[in-house]
Amino acid sequence: MRRIVVHFALVAGAALTLAGCGFADIRSPVPELMRAKAPEPPALGAPPDVKMLLRQKLDSVFTAASQPTQVRVSEPRPNLRGPGWTACVKAEVVSVTGKPLGTQTYRIEFADGAIADRQKVEPEDTCSTESYEPV
């Protein structure tokens, strides 16, 4: 009986040891040959026609009440924060009371050929170094 228990314990220990021999996560601190391969990034499609999208959907970036004028846009760039493309948009806008607010700049993101998101420009954005063209 004791012999069966010892054999069972050895088989269970060997099974647990071998169970840990699978491939590790790509960020695991094991030699690279034991890591799983990193997934391929999705293929980046053709850049969107930013000017046409802004002409069609300017209200998705600036509210109609802000009466945007002198709208300018930068060239689309691959989005470093996720899939898709990004561009910067500038326009002269007014407040709800009609007072000029000056130039407002937004970073817009594109997904599936449409404007997916807009964010007010932050200091770490590269919008200040971009060159702009009128829409």
Score class of each variant (00 low, 15 high):
2 R>H: 15
3 R>Y: 07
3 R>H: 12
4 I>N: 15
4 I>T: 15
5 V>G: 00
5 V>C: 01
6 V>P: 09
8 F>K: 10
9 A>P: 04
10 L>K: 08
10 L>A: 14
11 V>C: 09
12 A>K: 10
13 G>H: 06
16 L>C: 15
16 L>Q: 10
16 L>V: 12
17 T>N: 09
17 T>C: 12
18 L>I: 02
18 L>A: 10
19 A>N: 14
20 G>V: 05
20 G>Y: 07
21 C>H: 11
22 G>C: 05
25 D>W: 04
28 S>R: 08
31 P>A: 08
32 E>P: 03
34 M>I: 00
35 R>A: 01
37 K>L: 06
37 K>M: 09
38 A>G: 07
40 E>G: 11
40 E>R: 13
40 E>N: 13
41 P>D: 03
41 P>C: 02
42 P>Y: 03
42 P>H: 04
43 A>R: 11
45 G>H: 09
45 G>Q: 07
45 G>V: 04
45 G>F: 07
46 A>V: 10
46 A>N: 10
47 P>F: 02
49 D>C: 01
49 D>Q: 09
50 V>E: 01
51 K>S: 15
52 M>V: 14
53 L>D: 04
54 L>I: 10
54 L>G: 03
55 R>E: 12
56 Q>N: 13
57 K>T: 11
57 K>I: 04
58 L>A: 09
60 S>A: 11
61 V>I: 14
62 F>S: 07
63 T>E: 13
63 T>F: 14
64 A>F: 12
66 S>G: 06
67 Q>V: 10
67 Q>M: 11
70 Q>V: 15
71 V>H: 02
73 V>Q: 03
77 R>F: 08
78 P>C: 01
78 P>S: 02
81 R>G: 09
81 R>H: 12
82 G>E: 02
85 W>L: 08
85 W>Y: 08
86 T>P: 00
87 A>D: 03
87 A>Q: 01
87 A>M: 07
88 C>Q: 00
89 V>E: 07
90 K>N: 12
90 K>Y: 04
91 A>G: 00
91 A>N: 06
92 E>S: 14
92 E>R: 13
92 E>N: 15
93 V>M: 06
93 V>L: 08
95 S>V: 04
95 S>I: 05
98 G>I: 03
98 G>M: 02
99 K>E: 11
100 P>H: 07
100 P>G: 01
100 P>A: 08
100 P>F: 06
101 L>D: 11
103 T>N: 00
105 T>Y: 01
106 Y>A: 00
106 Y>E: 04
108 I>N: 00
108 I>F: 02
109 E>S: 13
110 F>D: 05
111 A>C: 07
112 D>C: 09
113 G>H: 06
113 G>A: 03
113 G>K: 02
114 A>Y: 08
116 A>E: 10
116 A>R: 12
117 D>W: 07
119 Q>Y: 13
120 K>G: 14
120 K>M: 15
121 V>C: 02
123 P>A: 12
123 P>W: 09
123 P>E: 10
124 E>R: 11
125 D>I: 08
125 D>M: 03
126 T>Y: 14
126 T>W: 14
128 S>E: 15
128 S>L: 14
129 T>P: 02
129 T>N: 13
130 E>V: 10
130 E>Y: 10
132 Y>C: 05
133 E>V: 15
133 E>A: 13
134 P>R: 06
134 P>A: 13
135 V>S: 02
